[in-house]
Nucleic acid binder design. Structure first.
Lengths: 394, 394
DNA sequence: CAACTTTTTTTCGGGCACTAAAAAAAATAA
DNA sequence: TTATTTTTTTTAGTGCCCGAAAAAAAGTTG
């Protein structure tokens, strides 16, 4: 982007733009693309010199923790992944004592392979399934770990000279949506992910909300039926116990509600096969999905009543089966909620894409970096506020 | 407060304080208490001249709408109520066509009695029970009205040259708590009110949250049991259908769950008598409260899972019966929620005080006035931020 | 009354964020 | 080559927020 366009977008005078950009150039945060291949239709006048973020100014490591896997990505200042690796570990054996070491070791290994020195990394972001306490920087409980209360941020902070944080995976999906399409995903919206577990992310009043201790939006373990089906968490009647993959398999197989989730093989031949069966008209499978849809409808109803989001996004691997759930979902929603509350929201069904989580981590990291560099000038309050919106010139 | 103290509190130099205060004096927003009765122990040196808000600078009208009543209060710039009246109207007959006129008429009448001209009123705040859409400025549905979708803000705006808004009554209680004790009620907390209905207010990340359309925190009509007890709203199984006064009376009288709430006399000899009975050891009453407590526990569990508040405040008329509900509540909470999520919150039980709603309206109005006068300098971001807290001198 | 103390006001000036206008730069068009 | 066009940079401010220091004000103390 050329300086003159930056001026248009920010509503600052050319003089100011020059001042600011020369500052950033001095700091090596941006680069000017001197004489690079100019766009063919060169107009009259002094040609614009394009500016870009300096991709190599700073690096970020984005890490996703899931069952048996640590997915690492090295991300440059432009937000591009320059290197990624998957490292295996044993979730069953991972606890508060052993895992932090494993993680730090994995990162060192990864940096070595990527040929980047740790000193160039200014940000390390981690996303994990389950109950993640952002505030304390630990994973209270997650299917990815055998143990509980596993500290993540503190050990990372000790091992690296970077800003470290951890967040729930669904929160990162929420951030990714806002990042990828702010015009659609802004204000107050909710993201519900149906997958191995059931997660929810909330964007409220234009900010990611994660609660007082950072565990917010635990949709999956909000109770649906008092004393109902047995959940992985040990309680009875959680939404997850009706909506997640093992719950669907359990229901379709006519296993008793109290069957231990651990004993159910919901793996490859679980959800996928169930979807296949439903597709070929199998009644058990269809009924299971329909019922799950109804439960989802009830869940949505509670979210709508309590949060009043403008939009709800449904995603996750189970969205492939949405066609079999949709009718039930609307039924449940209608049963559960007065009309006055039910008509003010939009529903998006979004095909699942594993990369969302990483995108969210990247978005979050970039935002934190910006905060870091620009002080608190981000989220413009005063001087940079633009009262009436103007289009960014092409 | 004297200028020198203002300097301490705001961390501004005396020079700046003088500059700003002389500005405000010119605008008549504050007054200097010249030679007023000085505090006896006069120290050495030039005596401080105390400054106060000019109570008469601007007026606000705070209005509470409830069944058959319009409660009006004239509030000065110091936040004091200078005049209040209760005006009766017929809730049953009130609809979208008739009520706005009634309200505007009531305000005019009130101003006449108060001897204040409408031109001095800069703010009109309204609180109502039920589903209030802050965004559109209307009451979608409320026990206070026979009709639905009753416009409030638009007619007020048309009739008065003031900033008008409407909000849910429980949201105003939430605001009142923050206002009255910010050190305790800040960050992320929830207020649950058990009364005629069941309401919830949310303060999230240090701001009142009211959702995308302003109806947020409708705790009472979030479903508890699919297909359960009949609620006033027409749906089955809402929390309100187990927790509100009519629900308690219904349960204690062993009436069927589907008994129409309208047919239940929960008035004076309803909840109050039930509490009396429970106090004297009546088994039916005790059981009803215990059961309601369990339902409340389940409700809290869902709020905690989804919102993760630092604190939950219970209030409302039904708190007089809290002793009979408490055990059930903790039982329900424990049954409904995994321990990891259950241990990060504090619970306050607050004796109910009708005035909270008015206090909240006053707080909200004062904040809006401040915003109006000081531009967007409120909620200090930069220059007024105080990194380390200092005590306000006595 | 003079000396002292404390608060308030005034004066002067620095620094920041930004701009208008002029100048410079770097191209195309005639 | 010269004129024209467009972008970028420089120069020289403006306006605001704020503070240091001095001055003034208004008392108490001895």
């Amino acid at each position: 982007m050329a300086r003159i366009d930056l001026g248009q977008v920010t509503r600052l005078s050319p003089a100011t733009v020059t001042a600011i950009t020369s500052d950033l150039l001095d700091q090596d945060l941006i680069l000017s693309l001197e004489s690079e291949e100019q766009k063919a239709p060169q107009a009259r006048g002094r040609p614009r010199t394009l500016l870009t973020l300096n991709p190599d100014a700073v690096f970020t490591i984005c890490i996703r923790l899931s069952v048996n896997n640590i997915d690492l990505a090295l991300v440059n200042f432009a937000g591009d992944v320059t290197c990624d690796r998957r490292i295996h570990f044993s979730s069953a054996g991972a606890d508060a004592d052993s895992f932090p070491e494993t993680l730090v070791e994995a990162i060192h290994q990864f940096l070595l392979e990527a040929g980047t020195s740790a000193s160039r990394v200014r940000e390390i972001g981690v996303a994990a399934q389950g109950v993640v306490e952002t505030e304390t920087g630990q994973v209270a409980w997650s299917p990815a770990f055998g143990g509980r209360r596993i500290p993540i941020v503190a050990p990372l902070q000790a091992a690296f000279d970077a800003d470290c944080y951890i967040s729930n995976d669904t929160n990162m999906i929420t951030e990714a949506l806002h990042w990828s399409d702010p015009s659609r995903y802004s204000g107050t919206f909710a993201v519900i992910m149906l997958d191995y577990g059931v997660g929810m992310g909330l964007y409220l009043d234009n900010r990611l909300f994660s609660g007082a201790s950072g565990t917010a939006a635990e949709f999956g373990h909000a109770n649906h039926i008092p004393g109902g089906a047995l959940c992985r968490c040990g309680k009875k009647g959680c939404l997850e116990a009706y909506l997640s993959d093992y719950a669907l398999v359990r229901a379709a197989s006519h296993l008793p509600e109290q069957t231990d989730p651990v004993s159910i093989d919901a793996g490859v031949n679980g959800l996928a096969r169930l979807i296949e069966l439903a597709g070929s008209g199998d009644d058990n499978a269809r009924k299971a999905f329909h019922e799950a849809g109804r439960v989802l409808g009830y869940g949505l109803a509670r979210v709508i009543a309590m949060i009043d989001p403008r939009r709800i996004v449904l995603t996750g691997a189970a969205m492939r089966a949405f066609a079999f759930m949709e009718k039930g979902m609307w039924e449940g929603l209608e049963e559960a909620l007065v009309e006055d509350l039910r008509n003010n929201f939009a529903l998006d069904v979004m095909p699942w894409n594993e990369d969302f989580i990483r995108s969210g981590l990247i978005a979050q990291s970039m935002e934190r970096l910006d905060m870091d560099f620009l002080g608190n000038a981000s989220r413009p309050a005063g001087r940079l506020a633009r009262p009436d919106s103007t289009e960014v010139p092409a």
